[in-house]
Amino acid sequence: MLAPPTAAAQGGSVLLEADVDGRPVGVGNLVLRPADTAKVSITVRNGTDTVQRVKTVRISGSALALTFFAYDTTVPFDVPPRSAETRSFPLDPSDLGSQATGLLPTTIEVIDVQRETIASVETTGDVKGSLWSVYGAFGLGVLVLTALSWAGALIALARRRLPANRWQRAMRFLPAGIGTGLVAVISLSVLRLVAPSPAAEIPFIAGAAAAAFALGYLTPHQEERRRSSVDADTVRFAR
């Protein structure tokens, strides 16, 4: 369970609590269905000595440092010092199906009149969207580019057209490795196995990139094979 984060302010902090359809945000996954209007309730606890003026509540989902959906609802209210205020409002995510699908890090935040975040709470959203959504299409695009990168590198290897320099050969394979890691991260998200996060993204992407880099670096070049063959023949004749 994720604890609600705080926003620093003078003399204390501001806490945000939220629930969707009666289920507290941060307890399990936040299920978002495009066909269902959700009832969102937020409570802002102002532990500071100043009035917190809330203007907007934003619900957004992101992955790989990209935002794939965001809903802003204008809910203006003030929270006096050392007190709490609760507001509820309906959320109509009817177009969510065309924006994302699968598990995505989701943030609910309250924003003031200067468009600055007062406080926020994070959770994992389970979006019941379409594979052909923006997020799904993004994953398919990465898959196609990764396949093309591997095809180009392997065809060059088969035709013996890779650079003679080992580092250049390694760099030829590196994009394919990075793409493989990205495909793994997005696939696990769409299949609702693991939500994208730095803890999940870095090992997959870095590991796949390192493996592809090593493959390119260790792949022998035609000239190296020729020299090895010549050296072997020289040793055999010397005997």
Rank of each mutant, 00 (worst) to 15 (best):
V75S: 04
P105K: 06
I111A: 09
A211H: 03
A35S: 15
A100N: 06
A8E: 14
T6A: 15
R53V: 14
R45H: 11
Q222V: 09
I155L: 15
A206G: 06
S120R: 12
V134C: 06
T73K: 14
M1H: 12
A9M: 07
N29P: 13
T180L: 06
T146P: 08
L30R: 12
S120C: 11
S228K: 07
P5Y: 04
H221L: 04
Q99E: 09
G179W: 02
L16N: 05
E201T: 09
V142K: 01
P76V: 01
E109D: 15
A7W: 07
V25P: 09
V31W: 02
A206I: 08
Q222R: 11
R58H: 07
A70P: 08
R161T: 02
L148R: 06
A151K: 11
P80I: 07
R192Q: 13
S133K: 02
P90I: 03
D72I: 03
F68I: 01
V113C: 11
R159W: 01
T86F: 00
T123P: 02
P5Q: 08
L32P: 01
L182H: 05
A199V: 10
A151C: 05
L157H: 12
F68Y: 14
I202T: 11
W167I: 08
R82H: 15
A208C: 15
F69S: 10
I155N: 12
S60W: 12
T56I: 09
